[in-house]
Design a protein around this nucleic acid. Structure first.
Lengths: 340, 340
DNA sequence: GCAATGTATGAAATCGATTACATCTGATTC
DNA sequence: GAATCAGATGTAATCGATTTCATACATTGC
């Protein structure tokens, strides 16, 4: 077997023109049944597969979507990637993936070189000039940035934080701590705002430690917490990883969770329910988020191909977070010496 | 601003031919300095970006590599994806990603439609006919299959299992259990073989529970273990997830790790050192694996482009696993009633 | 029996770049 | 001053598909 067969080879083997082969493959009902048969045989005989570059060039589409995320190794993204890829594959689109922190020029090219028909953006921290410079259908997922002209999909992080705070309030906690996400991140900021507002509404004493979404940030926050003169009886962490880091460090320091401190995480990663203690957390429906983003971007891409022009303006979509109560939260211990 | 600028637009604005623009961009030193300047200005003025489909068609390369993995959401792959993407991006290649279980025909197309120059394959379970049917540079990473005609990169799983067994033997365990990977998976098979051989060499009693790489498989194995009349004092699990599931279930059933049972995992995922107890495990250098695979596939792709023909035949490469000792393993409890 | 219509097919233009080859200019050599 | 050469640039072919338009033929209606 020599080089790849081209459409020309199929055509001459079948004794028809390339136009007919093309038609037989892409819209079979426009060619005669006998011809179609001949073509299909020739395709099989030559092992012909379409050359995507040639087709994409002619049709000015790429049949591919691009996912941009700030850190591909973040376990939070895995399920989202999988869901997007599944939806995309179902409609014949391939998926490209790239770290969104690869440098301005490379990034601009990615959205501009005709290899992607649409972009799912999981990073709200990219220069808006770059993002708005792309002339492609774009969906913001999970994170967002008000300056991007693109619809947003994700949960309401303020409301989600309120779920956590209300749960702790209901358990009887009066003095609570938040280990926040990184300061420049919208998700962290909104969760913190939701935390503070909800705590105020419930008349609770609220403290915030600036943190990050990482295990290490949680561990560090735990050390600060432990050093406090009067320690809050409950902690709401900006991510599950942060929460697990917090718990881990607390336990190592001799504290018990939840009797010394209740901990609520955020995300509901796979390990959350197997951790010891199993983690109470706010679930983000990551697979749903991925599916919704994929559906939206596909709709935009196809809509654009079909000529409707206002598909890009479809509105923001909210998905529902849920409070998952497990074993890392409980009622606060009575203060030593306090009345029963 | 209208539609995207094409090379023709740049050429006429700069007052040169398209050939000159092309040369000014791809090999600047072959055009005169004044011309180069004019072209660059025209590029800036028009906002021109190359159309990748056209370039790829003409050059018969895609400047893209494809990663195929059996489950994109598996946390094990994240670091690998990130490492590959980083290396690829450095040399101007984009990365496509797909689940490798998307159906034979789609899969065949992926390696055949000219959109990828090379493939990194993380799945040893694909029909060899499909894999060998691709006429592309190919690297097997982590998993492999002897019938694929492609170099392999990964650790020696038998030797890795031996590290775990030796560690347990050194601690004084005499009766050990292995919760294996899924039966059809080479990684699971080799780890099991390594386990059995090492246990035999050390004169230990060895049992195997068929399992999987999942949390749930570990939990289930723990229930079986707990039900045993004489329980092995140590367990080697085929993955960290499995190990965490095992520990979690044991603790819930009232056992203590490591005093009732020592547990060794495999992979060293990020959570391993924050779990309670911190998990003793075999580290797979995932970032190194990704980097090595990327380097290899890039070498093959460039080599092929440069005309050398035997790059595909480069040999298998072994990376070193390491035993990471943490808190989930310890000396076995003396049997009740046994002499001190 | 003839115009009108529809169906199947082919020829050739097209998508937007790269590149082989031709041409032109000016410098170098003898 | 002619011959040679190198460097810069342009012309046109090319990559491999899709799609417009034209054509050939069969079918329908009157």
């Amino acid at each position: 077997m020599r080089a790849r067969a081209r459409i020309k080879d199929v055509a001459s083997l079948a004794g028809v023109s390339t136009a007919t082969v093309s038609r037989a493959l892409s819209s079979p009902d426009t060619v005669g049944p006998a011809t179609r048969e001949k073509v299909m045989e020739a395709v099989k005989a030559t092992g012909y597969r379409i050359n995507a570059a040639a087709r994409d060039l002619r049709q000015r589409r790429a049949r591919s979507i691009l996912i941009l995320a700030p850190d591909l190794s973040n376990t939070f993204f895995g399920k989202i990637f999988a869901a997007i890829q599944e939806e995309a594959s179902d409609v014949g689109l391939t998926v490209q993936i790239s770290d969104s922190r690869i440098g301005r020029d490379r990034l601009l090219s990615l959205g501009y070189d005709g290899r992607a028909d649409g972009i799912v953006l999981l990073d709200g921290g990219i220069d808006p000039e770059v993002v708005n410079g792309w002339k492609l259908p774009l969906v913001q997922l999970s994170e967002w940035n008000d300056e991007y002209r693109a619809p947003r999909l994700g949960i309401d992080n303020r409301a989600a934080a309120r779920l956590a705070v209300d749960h702790l309030a209901d358990l009887g906690h009066r003095d609570i701590l938040h280990v926040s996400g990184p300061g420049e991140n919208v998700l962290g900021v909104e969760r913190q705002e939701g935390f503070l507002m909800a705590a105020a509404d419930r008349g609770m004493t609220a403290t915030v430690f600036p943190g990050a979404f990482t295990l290490e940030a949680g561990a560090q926050a735990a050390r600060h917490w432990a050093a406090l003169a009067t320690r809050p009886t409950a902690v709401f962490c900006a991510s599950d990883e942060c929460a697990l880091g917090f718990i881990s460090e607390c336990v190592h320091a001799g504290f018990d969770v939840p009797s010394d401190v209740s901990v609520v995480g955020f995300d509901d990663i796979d390990f959350a329910d197997r951790f010891l203690p199993a983690l109470t957390t706010i679930r983000q429906p990551r697979a749903d988020m991925g599916r919704a983003a994929a559906a939206r971007i596909i709709q935009m891409v196809e809509g654009r191909a079909a000529g409707s022009d206002n598909v890009d303006a479809l509105p923001t979509e909210r998905l529902e977070p849920a409070l998952i109560i497990r074993s890392s939260t409980g009622t606060p211990k009575r203060k030593p010496g306090a009345p029963a």
